[in-house]
Structures are given as structure tokens and as C-alpha cells.
Amino acid sequence: MPPLPAHLQTSARPFIEVDHFDFWYGPKQVLHDIHLAFPENHITALIGPSGCGKTTLLRNLNRMNDLVDGIRHRGDIRLDGTSLYDPKVEVISLRKRVGMVFQKYNPFPKSIYENVIFSLRVAGRSDRRQLDEVVEKSLRQAALWDEVKDKLHESAFGLSGGQQQRLCIARAIANRPQVLLMDEPCAALDPIATLKIEELMTQLKDEFTIVIVTHNMEQARRVADLTAFFYLGKLIEYDETLSLFTQPSQIQTEAYISGRFS
């Protein structure tokens, strides 16, 4: 059973368990024996210097890495008790349970409305009333509804960067996934837009289990309940955010959070 930080052992249910997970891109091993669990309805931040494997781990949680040639893994990842690599698991339905928000906002060249309901469209849902409801609910949750409700059928490219990223979040949660993966969601945004997204995340964690990759330690400190520090493909330390930042148990962690390397 992969570990949760000590004080959560009883209070929270581990929703995603990463069980002694190794991962290779071709001959290169990028993840070494990762062993941790993400608790339900918490925000977990993955931090670490570039190339430490945090994004690779994130992209394994919805098997986006399957698109890359020459990948190989050992160990297991379980979502709500079921292995992602179980032959019975359909990648497509897995991705419906695990939504993802990317570093660079990437709305589709379609209307705002069509962007939000894309995941429902590909699932074959077309009841207009239902779709309207989903659009409103998702956009409200993404704190975008008031800004776009009068131009739902205009192109998504007319929005500002922050709005586009919130649209991407609305799109990711439209189909009610259980997990929301966020790959540096604020990297391309200005501070005000970043703050909005962070507020949004704390609201969303009531409904979703959120895993966020970030370069920004302040951000991790502000939004995350738990933080995991990665270095060179290894999980160095995993703890409650406050204690990881105030009393790191490992030297590398301390060096990283105090800015001695990045």
C-alpha cells in the first residue's frame, strides 16, 4: 500500500496509488521506483527542477504517454483501486474519468460552447437541454460564466489568455471526471489570472481530486494540501505542504525550496 503522509493515514482515502512505478522513454529511465498516493478531494502539488519527471508522472495518470513511441513501465498505478494498465481498462473511458489541463492554454478552434461540451460530443451526447446545463455549470465552476455568457457561440480565440485557460478547465471538468490533472496551468498567465485560477482550484477540490505540477513554489504553498518533491526521477520527499516547506526532512528538498538550485 503506497503511503500517504502520516497525519492523513486515517482521515483521507488514497484515490490514486502509484505503486513502485518505473518508467522509460526508450533506453532512458525517467522515473525510479515512485511510490506514493494522492488522497481524494485534496490538491497535491508535484514540484522539482526541470527534468525531474514530475510531468511524466502526471501524464502517466491518464496514460497520455501512450502516444509516445518506445515507452515502457514497471510497477503499477491504481485509480480508485483499479490498475490503469488492466487489460479491461479502456484508455478512452479512463481519460473521461481523469481530466487534464495543459501548460499552454489550448482551446479548440471552435466556439466557447463547443469547446466546453467537446468531451460530451465525443461521447455521443446531443440532448440540447442537457448540454446547455453542462455548459453553464462548467463555466460557472470555472468562474467564467459571467464573462462569456453573452458570447457562448463566438470563437474561443477571442478570449484573453486567463479566460482561455479557465475555458480549458471548464472543458476538462465538463464530463464530471473524478481527477483533475493540471500541468503547470499558470505558466503562461499573468499574476492576476494566476490568482483567479488558484482560487478556482481550492473551490474545485471539493469535487475533484487534483494533482498539479508546478514550477512555482509559492503557488504550491498557496494552493496545495500536499506537496511531493521530485529530483532526478526520484521521489525525494512527500508531506503536508506546510511541513514540507517549513521543516523539510531531506537536504535536497531544503536546498530546492530555499532556492539554492532550480
Binding site: 497520455m64 478512452i92 473511458s93 481519460r95 489550448n106 467537446f118 465525443v122 480549458c168
Partner: peptide, 27 residues
């Protein structure tokens, strides 16, 4: 067609063909 948009479509649960048909080809 940008990789980001393709990945976003797949992450929304689209199959590869749906991604091509709805995102890549129109683009």
C-alpha cells in the same frame, strides 16, 4: 495542427479518429 490541441482532444476522451475528424482535419 498544434500538438497541444490534439492532446487536449485526446485528454477529453476522444478516440484518435474523433480527434482527427473533429480537431485535426478541420484545422
Amino acid at each position: 495542427v498544434p500538438r497541444g490541441v490534439r492532446e487536449a482532444a485526446l485528454a477529453c476522451g476522444a478516440s484518435k479518429w474523433q480527434m482527427i475528424q473533429r480537431i485535426a482535419l478541420p484545422g
